[in-house]
Design a protein around this nucleic acid. Structure first.
Length: 282
DNA sequence: CTGTGGTCCTGTATGC
DNA sequence: TGCATACAGGACCACA
């Protein structure tokens, strides 16, 4: 489950079951989700056995599970990844890719339909894995500075939505919460960053943080069974979406039907009246 | 450096 | 009932 609130929901769920647990067996059912492991999936599985989990961490949409030896298992859910905590006897759900047995008699299962997600072992990655050092702080990080990020954004020419989706500028925001934040801030997705004031962009970033915090409170956004927490349960924030997926429905502020457009090969939802297109942009 | 477009996959919904 | 097409919460890499 891709965006920050869904990933954080997963992290929090795993934080209740993983710390202190030792991996007793590992099985790779499909090689693709094993990433960056030159020695191959078998070696990946073998090298995990015997390691003991500390507390799971997250930056943006990346998760990592530090081990007590200072290495870490890094995970990204991609478009359709899930972690499930199950009893070993429970039926494997379809598309289960990797299974880790732990010494409390349970199994951690990585399930991923599309396999855009994956796992890898990061040597010495217990603090911040080197492979994700290019990922910017997310708006939930104590060190996140909306004004500094806004300054970066106002120096760029690309559309504002492109910029807030850029995980090297600010992490954690994906297509749903980008549209929701833009709706709240009354900004059109194609507005060039350089045409906006620092103040306006900082406000947008605060909206992004706020909408993601609200979603987290609802267990995230789920449209179908692909996006569930570690117990297989859906989140409920889809009922609170004001723009994303609301094509044709009246804008909650002004009643104008929400429109859907293609922007950078993805759907963008916005209110034509509250979020007017910039003059030059498209 | 910046911006864009293609690609990695499986599955579901919709239209003919 | 096929069969084809569009679309899906993302990231990365090659190229202009």
């Amino acid at each position: 489950m891709p965006e920050l609130p869904e990933v954080e929901t997963v992290r929090a769920g795993l934080a209740r079951v993983l710390p202190g647990r030792t991996i007793t067996a590992a099985a790779v059912l499909h090689p693709r989700p094993v990433r960056r492991h030159i020695a191959g999936p078998e070696d990946f599985a073998a090298t995990l056995v015997g390691r003991r989990f500390a507390v799971p961490r997250r930056r943006g949409k990346f998760l990592w599970f530090p081990f007590e030896d200072s290495d870490a298992l890094v995970a990204h859910l991609g478009m359709s990844g899930q972690f499930r905590s199950d009893a070993p006897g429970a039926d494997l759900v379809r598309n289960t890719r990797i299974v880790l047995d732990t010494d409390d008699g349970r199994q951690l299962r990585f399930v991923d339909q599309r396999m855009f997600g994956g796992l890898w072992l990061s040597p010495g990655g217990g603090d911040v894995p080197a492979e994700i050092s290019h990922v910017a702080l997310d708006p939930f990080d104590d060190r996140f500075d909306p004004v500094a990020v806004a300054r970066t954004i106002t120096r760029r020419r690309a559309g504002i939505k492109t910029l807030i989706l850029d995980q090297g500028i600010v992490s954690g925001i994906g297509n749903i919460y980008a549209d929701e934040a833009l709706w709240r801030a009354r900004l059109h997705f194609a507005t060039p960053g350089e045409d906006l004031s620092v103040r306006r962009v900082a406000t947008l970033l605060r909206h992004a943080r706020e909408v993601m915090a609200e979603a987290l409170g609802q267990g995230g956004t789920s449209f179908d069974a692909l996006y569930v927490n570690v117990n297989g349960e859906s989140g409920y924030f889809d009922r609170r979406l004001r723009a994303y997926g609301q094509e044709g429905r009246p804008c909650e502020r002004c009643g104008t039907p929400i429109r859907r457009e293609h922007f950078m090969n993805r759907s963008s939802f916005s209110c034509p009246r509250c979020q007017p297109a910039p003059r030059s942009g498209r």
